[in-house]
Computed example of a mutant assay.
Amino acid sequence: MSQKIRKAIIPAAGFGTRFLPATKSQPKEMLPLINKPAIQYIVEEAIQSGIEHILIITGRGKRSIEDHFDHSVELENILRSRGKWSQYKEVLDIAKMADIHFIRQKEQLGLGHAVHCARCFVGDEPFAVMLGDDIIHHSKKPALRQMIEQFEQYGKSIVGVQEVEMKEVSKYGVISGKQLHDQVYEVDDLVEKPPVEQAPSNLAIVGRYIIHPDIFDILEKTEPGSGGEIQLTDALKALCSTHGMQANILQGERFDIGDVWGYIHATLSLAMESEELHEKLSNFCSKRLQA
């Protein structure tokens, strides 16, 4: 019987250089999508998927992430005294959202190194990793929940994937493998950012993982790879060869908010789904297109 997935790691220590100068003095994870910071969408997905404990891996200059998920007593008192009960409840709910822990990645040594920082938090349990640059929106079943259900059936480590255009594969880690059924693939290899002509498929890894805890022993021995960083994909390749691995073709619309256009795309798409903003945005776009 498979162990329950109770813990999730959210790496959030990157510099956010693609969003400079906006990220010079604030974390990219705190950039708002409508009226919520991007990282809150990731935390909400984890909670909606059944995760009980979350570790956010931060770095210097990221204190505002911790503050966001903490109580703000002065703000709560002001909202309560002014009778702004819906806003008061919203702010209070954020502080009560989940059992959230924080640790700093003291050196920028790559995603593999960031995951290894979570070893004491994870212990000997399988766990989830959720990258903050990927917002995956599905109205019925969160992306991580889709993967957890697969893990409960097969008990293997899983990478979340989606199809991308072949000309885009060099931007991603890509899997090769055999489709078992529907969303499930049996993985035989992972290739990090392959040239188009060498890509084994167009199934790109999109920032969601469920990983066996043996990955930590592998990460300890993993040499720095591309960019002098410890690549999680290199460790996953080794884990795949010894323990087996699967992929899940995630259902839902994905937004790469680490990219400026992806961030704009996410903002507009979420605004179109808002009852309050849909009509205003539609009218604005119509007028701009006619101008």
Rank of each mutant, 00 (worst) to 15 (best):
K156F: 13
M147A: 04
I158Q: 08
R145F: 11
E149L: 10
K141N: 15
E149A: 05
G155I: 11
I136L: 06
A114W: 04
M147K: 03
G173P: 07
Q108A: 15
D134Q: 09
I148R: 02
E149P: 00
V122D: 07
M166E: 11
E152Y: 14
V122F: 03
G123I: 13
V129E: 12
E168V: 00
V159D: 08
V115E: 01
R119A: 09
I136V: 10
G160S: 03
A128T: 06
V174T: 06
V164M: 03
R104N: 13
A143T: 03
C120F: 15
E163H: 05
L131H: 07
R119V: 03
Q105Y: 01
D124V: 08
Q150D: 12
Q146I: 07
Q108D: 15
A118W: 01
K156S: 08
Q105H: 12
V122P: 05
G155H: 11
E152L: 08
E163F: 00
Q153Y: 13
F127W: 10
K106M: 14
L111I: 07
E149N: 13
Q146L: 04
D133P: 01
L131D: 11
V122Q: 12
V129C: 06
A128Y: 01
K106W: 06
P142K: 08
E149S: 07
M166Q: 09
K141E: 15
Q105L: 15
K141D: 13
E168I: 00
C117Q: 13
K156T: 10
P126Q: 05
Q108W: 14
C120S: 15
E168M: 03
A128R: 04
L111V: 05
V129K: 09
V174E: 01
S139R: 12
Y172H: 10
K140L: 15
L144F: 05
A114Y: 03
A143V: 04
Q162Y: 11
Q153C: 13
M147H: 08
Q108H: 14
K106C: 10
Y172K: 10
I175D: 00
Q162I: 12
K106V: 13
Q146S: 05
L109K: 15
H113Q: 09
V115D: 02
A128G: 03
E165C: 00
Q105P: 03
M147G: 03
G110C: 08
E163W: 05
V174S: 00
I158W: 08
D134W: 11
E107Q: 08
D133E: 14
K106N: 14
V122E: 04
H138R: 06
V159C: 14
H138S: 12
V115L: 07
Q162H: 04
G112F: 07
C120T: 15
H113I: 00
K171E: 11
V159G: 09
